[in-house]
């Protein structure tokens, strides 16, 4: 009986939390469109979410492109089609690896920070203080992060793709000796607008997932059951926000792909 009760209670908690997140997202979107519009907080958040992630994106992008090129070169050379190496690397980066890996990196770097920051504001009553000053915390704290994430994610993804393609070029052409002309020519011939479109849609969706999950987990740290209080509570919701965001990114990746293909 206890096991069933436990299961029921847990399920209810999850449903509750999912509902909270949904409402949180709706509330945030409403606040994004509410005046007053202030640019400076958004720029600041773009700096935090976007600019500060550039280094890690370049680094991971380069190595991803390099290893893709290495793997594909060996596979393709079995079939004598090394000439399409460029398009193979580019397509897998643009459609799949770029958005997903960039989103995972941003989750780890900016998502966790976002969650912890909002969580600390909650437990130290700073969010209550905002409420009492009639300043909507959704408008003041969450909306700028939301807009900044939606602007930053596609740009970071594009950066990841470009760096990855050049990383692939270095290994495929520079190291393994594939033909330089065909690396870019095949890319030009095979990459279509719909591929880019898919990458952009994915990156936007992932940006949305990251902000929604990470912000709402931090925002509702006081309502989280069994997570502990204070610093421990914040650390446990941060962990779970990163895990949940990563899982959701991969799950939604599948569904977005299946819809857009």
């Amino acid at each position: 009986m206890n096991a069933i009760e436990n299961f029921g209670a847990r399920t209810l908690d999850y449903v509750n939390e999912a509902g909270r997140m949904g409402l949180f997202l709706i509330n945030t979107i409403i606040n994004v469109f509410k005046p007053p519009y202030k640019i400076y907080p958004i720029i600041k958040q773009i700096h935090v979410i976007g600019s500060l992630s550039i280094f890690v994106i370049i680094f991971t992008g380069a190595f991803t492109g390099m290893v893709m090129s290495l793997q594909m070169y060996h596979t393709l050379s079995k079939y004598g089609s090394v000439s399409v190496l460029g398009s193979a690397v580019a397509l897998s980066l643009i459609k799949e690896l770029g958005p997903v890996l960039a989103a995972l990196m941003v989750t780890g770097r900016a998502g966790s920070a976002m969650c912890a920051e909002i969580g600390v504001m909650r437990i130290s009553e700073q969010i209550d203080a905002l409420d009492c000053m009639a300043i909507d915390p959704h408008k003041y704290i969450v909306a700028p992060k939301f807009i900044a994430a939606l602007i930053s994610m596609p740009l970071l993804t594009a950066l990841f793709d470009v760096v990855g393609i050049f990383g692939g070029y270095m290994v495929g052409v520079g190291l393994l000796g594939a033909n330089e002309g065909s690396y870019f020519a095949s890319m030009q011939a095979d990459v279509e607008f719909s591929d880019i479109y898919m990458g952009v849609v994915k990156s936007l969706c992932f940006g949305l997932i990251i902000v929604t999950i990470c912000s709402s987990k931090g925002y509702y740290v006081h309502l989280t059951k069994g997570g502990g209080f204070g610093a421990e509570g914040v650390s446990s919701v941060t962990t779970s926000a990163v895990v949940l965001s990563s899982v959701c990114i991969l799950v939604f990746d599948y569904f977005i792909t299946s819809v857009l293909l």
Binding site: Q126, D128, A129, C132
Partner: peptide, 13 residues
């Protein structure tokens, strides 16, 4: 309203 919280609740950043 003007509110002072017991722990002051200043914005620490």
């Amino acid at each position: 309203f003007g509110v002072l919280f017991q722990n002051s609740a200043l914005f620490d950043s």
